[in-house]
């Protein structure tokens, strides 16, 4: 490779900028969380994890994230197929709407959900409450808020893959006698597998970390509707070393789960852009 000095300087400058940017914005702050967590050794961390509030908060977060991801996977694939394979009036509007959760503040999402689903004045909430299903200040609301904010992640991963593979494989499968469902299960799904999995992991990471929308719809009552992120906020604002260690521990675990999931999926996934 023929390299001029100017070229080399540019390259190193670019690298420095990128590394510096990542260092000050991501790596250093996250590392500090880890450092704070283990500042007094392992014992306080284990004590923090033994608190029933912490255990409950993580259970609630995990189950809400799980259901949100399940919902987003099913609807995400459905909407992706609809967007790519069919033309219908309003398709572009739907396409734009899918990105809404990325651009609208989660707090607004939470408020909107409260307006519709609250048990006293909400449009749907009153009927649901009479039927015995409480949405707001209860797990269903938390799941809905979480699903809403992470909806685009699956779709934005799956849509480009669907566009790239085109329709010919599906048509070939149909002409070979496969029904719509067989074609989807045997041809489409394996083709979008990695995109879908990546979307699911992103969606999971986002769901674990959701704060704003959940804060509004859940009320954040400890041992009832307090998720891990809400617990972090509550403990962080209270006095005392035990509380702050608990906050850092919960934050550290949240970050750890997301990072580990991303690392696993990235290492499993075959190189992007190459056909398997």
């Amino acid at each position: 490779m023929h390299d001029t000095t100017a070229h080399r300087v540019t390259r190193w400058a670019l690298r420095l900028i990128v590394i510096g940017y990542l260092l000050f914005l991501v790596i250093w702050p996250v590392a500090l969380v880890a450092a704070k967590t283990f500042a007094n050794g392992l014992a306080p961390v284990i004590d923090a994890l033994r608190q029933p509030e912490v255990i409950f908060a993580f259970q609630l977060t995990l189950s809400a994230a799980f259901w949100a991801v399940v919902i987003n996977t099913i609807f995400g694939v459905g909407i992706s197929v609809l967007l790519v394979r069919y033309t219908f009036p309003g398709r572009r509007a739907l396409n734009a709407m899918v990105d809404l959760p990325l651009s609208v503040s989660p707090v607004v999402v939470g408020l909107a959900l409260v307006l519709v689903y609250n048990g006293r004045t909400g449009w749907l909430g009153q009927g649901l409450e009479q039927a015995g299903l409480q949405v707001i200040y209860a797990p269903p609301g938390i799941i809905m808020a979480t699903a809403f904010v992470s909806l685009p992640l699956v779709i934005r991963e799956v849509v480009p893959v669907l566009q790239e593979i085109g329709t010919e494989q599906e048509q070939a499968a149909r002409s070979l006698g496969a029904s719509g469902l067989q074609t989807f299960a045997r041809i489409t799904l394996p083709a979008i597998k990695w995109g879908l999995l990546y979307g699911v992991v992103l969606s999971l990471a986002r769901s674990l970390g959701e704060f704003g929308a959940v804060k509004i719809v859940s009320g954040g009552v400890a041992m009832r509707t307090q998720t891990a992120t809400l617990l972090v906020e509550e403990r962080y604002q209270q006095f005392g070393i035990v509380n702050s260690i608990t906050a850092y521990t919960a934050a550290f675990i949240l970050a750890l789960i997301a990072v580990v999931a991303l690392i696993i999926i990235t290492s499993l996934r075959p190189g992007r852009g190459t056909s398997e």
Binding site: Q169, Q171, R174, L176, A178, R186, P190
Partner: peptide, 28 residues
């Protein structure tokens, strides 16, 4: 299409990328 029992060959092959050659041929 799936009930016509027609063999169709596409210009750009439409190979099932995730299946082996034998898997492709045996699909129908």
């Amino acid at each position: 299409a799936q009930k016509r029992n027609v063999g169709f060959v596409f210009q750009h092959y439409a190979a099932f990328r995730h299946l082996t050659v034998a898997g492709n041929v045996g699909f129908g």
